[in-house]
Every structure is written in structure tokens, then in C-alpha cells.
Design a protein around this nucleic acid. Structure first.
Lengths: 149, 149
DNA sequence: ATTTCTGCAAATGCTTTGCATTGCA
DNA sequence: TGCAATGCAAAGCATTTGCAGAAAT
């Protein structure tokens, strides 16, 4: 039995093929898909599946803490099955979202959270750090275009 | 003449009372309003004003670099006339967005951006850092409720 | 058998668009 | 006067909701 099944059962949430499939896609993919991307990936295996089910599943997985939601300001949201605190970088050109694994978000939280708490008086629950720019692939394409003109 | 008028004229963008009023509200308010809040604030002075005009104005001000857009994952977006890099803290309870002025976002960019560039190969344009939690006012209210129960 | 989930369609909420009218330059 | 901006209403997306039938426990 997978960890996810145990977690769901413990909370009396039913284990369905759709939920397993959504989570499995998130676990496998590195590019942090949005709801529509997940829906399209599931279509071959679940032709009758509804977009609403994907939305509801994201909600369930988020609430039990199995995934995190990313907001890169696109309109739709992106999802990540890696829940350890880490930051993300977004390509404004192709929309790709990549993990920034070695950026010290955990250390940042440990060392500086107290400072921010003091300044603001807030009780801080979590932190999100986004980098915005253009990815190597898009930069290369642009160079090629410029060279040929 | 205010700086904003000069900047708009330089870009051949017309200076209208609506645009001035929207920017003035943003300059004055500390709580980082969304479009609806700005619209409501403007209604007494501009009874005929349309929500669409506020949206279009935010777009113009953003494009000329006079304001920045904040995305705290609420649905709607928040706006900030302070464009110097700084981070924000969001109260999940009352929705307030507060500046974190002394958090070293500029230093963070200077010292660690190179590291992230190396790891990801991205060309980085800007960074956004959000803290999420509960504000002092909401925390106090909660304590009162608990004490009285 | 009970309860929750799924799939569908309709509804909602934020934002954008098209276009005639208005107003800045 | 000419071109851009405003205001209005309709359209567009992402997301949510309500509910009958289906599936999990």
C-alpha cells in the first residue's frame, strides 16, 4: 500500500482510481502541471473523467498536505507533489516552472523568520519564493533568431 | 507637475483624471488594494466610472513601471505603488497585505541570484517573496475568543 | 447499506474585449 | 481635429457548485 492510500484512509477519504492517477502524474512530472495539463494527461486512461473531478482532487490532496499549490501569476495554478519547502523559477516565455532545489529556503526560514515576525507582528505559517525570468532553452532560441537576422 | 504625468506624457499616454485618481489611491494606501477596492474608493468622486477602466488603468501603470502587481493567491490581484524590491506578508484571516520593509530582498537578490542562475541556467528578471500567516489583530481577536469560551 | 465521489451542466467571479461616445492634446 | 481613453455590455477563462447516478467502504 502506498503512503497516499494510508493517509487518505486515515482521514476517511475514499481511495479512488482518479485520485491515485492524479497524484501519480504529479509525482512523475517535473514541470508542475496545471489542472488542464493533468486533465489532458488523464484522458487516455479515463475518457469519461471530468475537469471538475481534477479540481476537486487537487482540493483534497492540498487539504491533506500531499501537494502544494503554486501561483506564478498565469491565471491557472500549478501543482507540486514535492511538499518540502523549496522555491520555484518560472519562464515568462514558455511557462515552464522548475524547482530551485539548492536555494536555501529552509535556512532562510529558520534564520530570518524571527526578524520578520518581530517587524510585522504576524504569526508566520509558510513562505513562498518565486524567481521570474527566461529559461536556457528560450534564451538559446532567441540567440539563434538574432544571429540569423 | 507630478512624476507620473511626466512619465505618461513621455510615453504618449494620455493623462486623465481617472488615471491620476487610481494612482493617487495606490500611493496613499498601505493595504495594497485590489481592483474592486480601488473602484469602490473612486465611486464617490467618479460616479460614472467603470470597473473596466480601473482594470485598463492597472494595465497601463504596470506597463510603464509605476506599480507592481501582487499575487497572494486570493483570486484577485493586489497592487502596490512602491516598486522598489521588497517582500509582502499576507494575513490568511482578514486578507490584509503588508509590506515587509526591512526584509533584505535586495541583498538577497544581489548575493544569491548568481547561485540560482548557475543552478537553473535561467536569466532572472525579478524575484517575489511572500510570507503567509495571521496578523497581530487577528491573533488578538482569536485569543479573546478563546479566553471567553 | 451507507456514505462519499464522480461526471455533467449550470453558475460564479475575476478579467478582457468590442465598440460607440467622450475627452485629452 | 485626430487619436486615445472611457463606459457599457457582452464575452472569456478558471474555478466552484448542485445534484443524480456510480463506486468505495
Amino acid at each position: 500500500m502506498h503512503a497516499i492510500e494510508e493517509i487518505l484512509r486515515k482521514k476517511k477519504i475514499k481511495v479512488t482510481p482518479q485520485r491515485m492517477a492524479v497524484y501519480s502524474i504529479l509525482k512523475q512530472s517535473k514541470f508542475h502541471p496545471n489542472v488542464e495539463m493533468i486533465y489532458q494527461k488523464l484522458k487516455p486512461d479515463f475518457p469519461a473523467m471530468s475537469l471538475a473531478t481534477v479540481y476537486k482532487t487537487m482540493d483534497v490532496l492540498k487539504k491533506v498536505g500531499l501537494i502544494q499549490e503554486l501561483n506564478v501569476g498565469e491565471g491557472g495554478l500549478r501543482y507540486d507533489a514535492q511538499i518540502r519547502p523549496h522555491s520555484h523559477i518560472y519562464c515568462k516565455n514558455c511557462g515552464k516552472v522548475v524547482d530551485v532545489d539548492h536555494f536555501p529556503l529552509e535556512e532562510l526560514q529558520d534564520s530570518l523568520l524571527e526578524k520578520v515576525k518581530e517587524e510585522t507582528g504576524f504569526n508566520i505559517l509558510f513562505v513562498q519564493l518565486y524567481f521570474f525570468g527566461t529559461c536556457p532553452e528560450c534564451n538559446d532560441k532567441k540567440e539563434l533568431l538574432e544571429a540569423s537576422s
